Amino acid sequence: MADPTYPAIAAKAALVEISVAAAVIPAAWPVAQIVYFNQCDPETIMRKGGDWLSMYDQLGTARDNLDSAVGTLTPAQWSGRDRDAFGVHVRKYEVQVIGTQVLAVTVGVTMLCVGAILLCLVVAYTVVSTILFAFATFIAAAAATVVGSPAAASALATANSFAASALGFLKGIEAMAEAVATGGAAAIAAAGAFDVGMQLGTGRTDVLKDLVQATVDGLDNVAAGFLSKWERDFVGYGIHSSGRHIAGSPNGPGYLIYGGMTQVAPAGADADGDTVWGTSGVVDNVWSRVFGGDVWNH
């Protein structure tokens, strides 16, 4: 297993810091959701993108070498139907390589762009999480003394304001990453279809068998990715509910039992003015997925 990269380590450290901070600073919960949702390793993503671009260069070199090799054979040295058939075969091969090059450069550029934006997001939420963690540490220490209580209250108000401002900034980067990833996925799908079309257009029907085999081989990764995303959304929704239902204090109208992934929300009105009953989080998440809407809001 490869050694963890610095961005991946920073992302995990930020999750620990923001989890502690959110226990003291109510407005930090939505930030915690963003940090949790965007645990990633941008450096590895960018490195793999570079590998795809390297493949593009290697395919281009192969084409150049082939052209050079064919160009050395003059009509005086080799001519006739065999030479013509060879030329047709080489041109088909070049078309196939071009199709693969288009796919390689599309995947590579997409991974580099997504990785770069995710790196910016990791750096941003790491800084925000560290600042909020420092706020939380100071607030907890100051609140433990009678003399420090006013300072703790003032720091809490400042921390909540900072968290709310930082949330908008982080959401902007997150939205940018999602937009680039969505656009990149569409571009990769189009490039893949173009590659397959180029292969079929030159008579290489084995590409369909290869496509089916690659799909079968990748099913385990697809299944693991789906389960991972489902688990992420499942837990993250509880964090979202916490940020939505909390009003003023971790012990106020609502709070999150983080380990149990359960949002506790006694009857009353949440920040949206909706009446809230019982526990949400896990149950709310299941309800919204099956029936849509929010089971707790009436």
Rank of each mutant, 00 (worst) to 15 (best):
D3C: 06
P7R: 14
I9L: 11
I25D: 00
P30S: 11
Q33F: 08
I34P: 00
P42S: 14
R47C: 06
G49C: 09
G50I: 13
L53G: 05
L53Q: 08
M55A: 15
M55N: 12
L59A: 03
T61K: 02
N65K: 02
R81A: 04
A85Y: 06
K92W: 10
Q101C: 05
Q101L: 01
L103E: 13
M111F: 14
L118D: 03
V128R: 00
T130A: 03
L132W: 05
A136S: 08
T137D: 13
A142W: 02
G148Q: 11
N160M: 09
L170K: 08
A179F: 14
G183E: 06
G184I: 06
I188Y: 02
A190I: 08
F194H: 10
V196P: 08
Q199F: 07
V207S: 03
V207L: 03
D210E: 14
V212S: 10
V212W: 04
Q213I: 11
V216Q: 01
V216G: 01
S228M: 12
W230S: 00
N251C: 04
P253T: 02
G254W: 04
Y255L: 05
I257Q: 05
G259M: 01
T262S: 07
P266E: 09
G268N: 09
G268F: 09
V282R: 13
N285A: 09
R289A: 02
R289V: 09
V290N: 05
